[in-house]
Simulated assay, not measured.
Amino acid sequence: MSHEPTGLALYDKTARDAAAAVITAYSTSFALATRLLGARPRPHVRNVYALVRIADEIVDGPAAAAGLDPSEERRILDALEAETVAAIARGFSSNLVVHAFARTARECGIDEELVGPFFSSMRTDIVTSQHDAASHDDYVYGSAEVVGLMCLQVFVNAGAVRPARPATELIDGARRLGAAFQDVNFLRDQHHDEGALGRDYLGLASGESSRLDVLDRIDADLAAAAAVIPRLPADCRRAVTAAHDLFAALSTRLRRDSPSDERIRVPDPVKAALAARAWLGFAPRRQTTRAHA
C-alpha cells in the first residue's frame, strides 16, 4: 500500500516544497539558518519567508523589469494581500506560496494584525523614497518587526492544539531582532537603494541620522535580542542564534569598513563557523555599543 500523500495532503506538501524553493534561491544565509531549526518549526518559517520574499520582489525591481508601472505594482500587491487574507480564512489558495503561508498562519495564530502592516510597508516602497525617523520606524515595523513576530508565532505555536500569545519579553526580542536585521540590510544595500531605486531608508543622505548612530542602534537591538534567545523553545534557539550571530558579524564589518559600492558579506567559512557554534549550543554573541538599549 502506498503511503505517498494524496489530495489536500499532497497539495500542502507541494506548497511547502514551493516555499522551500523560494528561500533556497533567494537567501543562502537564511536557508542555512532554517536548516538548524527543528522539524516542527522549519517548514512554517520557510512558508513565512516565501510570501515575504515574493511581496518584496513586486516592489523591488523584478515587476518593474517586466514592464509594470507603479500603479500596476500596487494592484498586484493589493491582490496578493487580499488573496493571503482570504486564504487564511478559508484554508486554501490556488497560489502555492500563499497556500503554504495560510496553512502556517492558521496553525500558528498569524492574523491580519501582522499581515496588514507588512503589506502596508511594501506599498510604502511604491510611493515613498525618502524617510525620516518616524517613517523609518513605521516602515521597519511593517517590513521586518512583524516578520520576526510571525516567526515567533511559529516558534511558540507550531504543532500546538491552539495558538497562544508569546511572552512579552519574547515579543520585544523578536521585534528588535527584526529591526536589527533590516537596518543591517539597509546599510549593506545603501548604494544600491540610493542609486538603483532612489531610496534613502535611514535618512543618511538628508543628514537625519549618521552611519554611526545606525550601527549603535543595530548593536543595541542585537544585544537586547541576544538576552531573550535562550528563552525560545529548544528546537528554535540554534537557528535564531546563528542568524543573530551572522548579523552581528555583519554589523562588526560595517563598523570596521568604510562605506563602498561593494556589498559587505561574511565569508562562507565564517558563516559555517557561526552555524557550528550555534549548533553546539553556545549562547548568542553579545554586541558592545556606546548606545543605550
Rank of each mutant, 00 (worst) to 15 (best):
residue 2 S to Q: 11
residue 3 H to L: 12
residue 6 T to N: 03
residue 10 L to F: 07
residue 10 L to V: 10
residue 15 A to V: 09
residue 17 D to I: 14
residue 20 A to F: 15
residue 22 V to D: 01
residue 23 I to H: 09
residue 29 S to E: 15
residue 32 L to D: 06
residue 33 A to G: 07
residue 37 L to D: 02
residue 40 R to G: 01
residue 42 R to Y: 02
residue 44 H to A: 07
residue 45 V to Q: 05
residue 46 R to N: 14
residue 49 Y to Q: 06
residue 50 A to E: 00
residue 54 I to W: 06
residue 57 E to R: 11
residue 61 G to H: 06
residue 61 G to I: 08
residue 64 A to G: 14
residue 65 A to F: 11
residue 66 A to D: 13
residue 67 G to V: 05
residue 70 P to S: 09
residue 77 L to C: 03
residue 77 L to G: 04
residue 82 A to Q: 12
residue 83 E to H: 03
residue 85 V to D: 14
residue 88 I to Y: 01
residue 88 I to A: 00
residue 90 R to G: 00
residue 93 S to K: 06
residue 93 S to I: 10
residue 96 L to Y: 12
residue 100 A to W: 03
residue 103 R to H: 00
residue 105 A to Q: 09
residue 106 R to E: 02
residue 110 I to T: 02
residue 111 D to F: 10
residue 113 E to T: 15
residue 114 L to R: 06
residue 114 L to P: 02
residue 116 G to S: 07
residue 117 P to E: 04
residue 121 S to A: 14
residue 125 D to M: 09
residue 127 V to W: 12
residue 128 T to A: 09
residue 132 D to N: 07
residue 134 A to P: 05
residue 137 D to H: 12
residue 139 Y to P: 05
residue 141 Y to A: 05
residue 143 S to G: 04
residue 143 S to Q: 13
residue 146 V to H: 09
residue 148 G to K: 11
residue 150 M to G: 01
residue 151 C to Q: 03
residue 152 L to A: 01
residue 152 L to N: 06
residue 154 V to T: 09
residue 157 N to H: 02
residue 158 A to Y: 10
residue 158 A to K: 00
residue 159 G to Y: 05
residue 159 G to P: 10
residue 160 A to C: 13
residue 164 A to N: 04
residue 165 R to E: 13
residue 165 R to Y: 01
residue 165 R to M: 08
residue 166 P to Q: 09
residue 169 E to Q: 01
residue 171 I to C: 04
residue 172 D to Q: 10
residue 173 G to S: 09
residue 173 G to I: 07
residue 176 R to D: 08
residue 181 F to P: 08
residue 184 V to C: 08
residue 184 V to K: 00
residue 184 V to G: 06
residue 188 R to Y: 13
residue 194 E to H: 11
residue 199 R to C: 00
residue 203 G to N: 04
residue 203 G to R: 06
residue 204 L to Q: 05
residue 204 L to C: 11
residue 204 L to F: 07
residue 204 L to E: 02
residue 205 A to V: 15
residue 208 E to Y: 01
residue 209 S to A: 11
residue 210 S to L: 06
residue 211 R to M: 12
residue 213 D to Q: 12
residue 216 D to M: 07
residue 217 R to W: 06
residue 225 A to E: 00
residue 226 A to R: 11
residue 232 L to I: 09
residue 237 R to V: 01
residue 237 R to N: 05
residue 238 R to M: 09
residue 239 A to V: 09
residue 241 T to E: 05
residue 241 T to P: 01
residue 241 T to R: 02
residue 242 A to M: 13
residue 245 D to Y: 13
residue 246 L to E: 04
residue 247 F to H: 15
residue 248 A to P: 00
residue 248 A to I: 07
residue 249 A to K: 07
residue 252 T to M: 05
residue 253 R to K: 13
residue 254 L to N: 14
residue 256 R to A: 00
residue 260 S to A: 13
residue 266 V to I: 15
residue 268 D to F: 13
residue 269 P to I: 14
residue 272 A to G: 02
residue 274 L to H: 08
residue 275 A to L: 15
residue 276 A to G: 08
residue 277 R to A: 02
residue 278 A to R: 10
residue 281 G to N: 02
residue 283 A to N: 00
residue 287 Q to I: 07
residue 292 H to I: 11
residue 292 H to F: 04
